[in-house]
Design a protein around this nucleic acid. Structure first.
Lengths: 213, 213
DNA sequence: CTTCTTCTGTGATAAATGTTACTGTAGATT
DNA sequence: AATCTACAGTAACATTTATCACAGAAGAAG
């Protein structure tokens, strides 16, 4: 357990790791748990050591829209940003695979930024990469049509799990793209006809050759 | 000129202001100048002291999509983020009203973060507010239809200039929302019929009463 | 095996948005 | 005044996406 921080966050200095273990509290959450809601105040920064957390935006009508996933070795950029002034969360965070996290009280943030170079760099890099990711999301909805967005979504999923099978129902995909199940079914069918995927119940197999370009 | 920094960035400490004036270089740019292109390397952080800069994303087909405007007293969050590692820009920055800026070489960033508390806080706050703004943009395209987005766009414009007349052609609006001029014309006409706006050549007057809710 | 539930496929139709094509008008230019 | 150009209005049509309605198939539960 102690060592997992070291391997997951290889750039952290030994002193920083010690400080984290001293001040943070390790916690586990089951899939389905909602860790953060829109409008809630943020009291902790979260480092993920196991599992997966989905960060998404919720529309007034209850629709949702996927921003990105948090995985082991990553941290929640939003919580870091808001934390500084204990702001309200602008997003929803939901556990999609049982997670283990390190909860770090917000008071530590500013302190460590000054004291630990490796923490400072990690925070900046987290901001940067998330900002970039969100910009890519904007690109997708602003410039691309549903079929392209679907392809991109599947690709991102398979990249993240490292395998070519995406185990999701059409309904789940539709929800994350904020569209309807029928639309997803139809587009997937077309993709199958184009030879891009193979469809099974609750599972979509990406035929990589056509995909990775 | 010296004093403008002080009034525009009231939270900066006197020492920080002195340091900025010492290390930064004041520069002016005419409306229309493109300060940053997608893919370019970033060498400076930019503080705006006069004018307006448009930050937008560019699609492969040349379409554009407005993210937000930078105004006096603000800084380019992207340049701050990327700067840390001299990354490539992910966005376009175009001067829309003649600007004066302070260019700050990227080496200063990290240094000042450690040395000047008020700089650190400014940077964090800039990150936070821009991130929030981008999330709002995502909301708009993900959950709202064109007419709502148009209303939001107009409102934001009038808020930013403090007046109720938006001096833009339908074409310009269409470009920023990445749609076509005809669509904007149609929707504006409908809004006029609903009594929300009054249309003139190159100018849209918001009839506030209905608007500010 | 039978029943139930969830997931998937698909047609028909509606609504929103994009595209094409054309017209008129205001203001600038000559 | 005559001409030109950018801007605005609008109809007709194409395309994309959303919604409704229903049917069949896979797997779970009894």
């Amino acid at each position: 357990m102690q060592s997992s921080l070291k391997t997951l966050f290889p750039n952290f200095s030994p002193e920083l790791i010690a400080t984290i273990e001293e001040n943070g509290s390790a916690q586990d959450f089951k899939a389905g748990t909602i860790l953060m809601r829109t409008g809630q105040y943020i009291k902790n920064t979260v480092l993920i050591t196991k599992g997966k957390i989905k960060i998404y935006r919720e529309g007034e009508d209850g629709g949702e829209f996927l921003m990105y996933y948090l995985q082991p070795g990553q941290a929640c950029a939003i919580s870091m940003i808001c934390t500084a002034k204990s702001e309200k969360s602008q997003i929803m965070a939901k556990v999609t695979e049982d997670v283990s996290v390190m909860m770090i009280p917000l008071q530590m943030m500013d302190k460590w930024m000054m004291e630990h170079r490796s923490w400072y760099e990690f925070v900046i890099e987290t901001y940067r990469s998330r900002f970039e990711e969100v910009l890519e999301v904007v690109d997708n909805i602003a410039f691309r049509s549903m079929d392209e967005r679907l392809e991109f979504y599947l690709k991102r999923h398979s990249d993240s799990c490292g395998c070519s099978e995406v185990k999701l129902s059409h309904q789940e995909i539709a929800t994350e793209l904020n569209t309807s199940r029928e639309v997803v079914s139809r587009l997937l069918k077309k993709m199958e006809q184009r030879g891009l995927v193979k469809l099974n119940r609750n599972q979509i197999e990406l035929l990589k050759t056509n995909f990775t370009n």
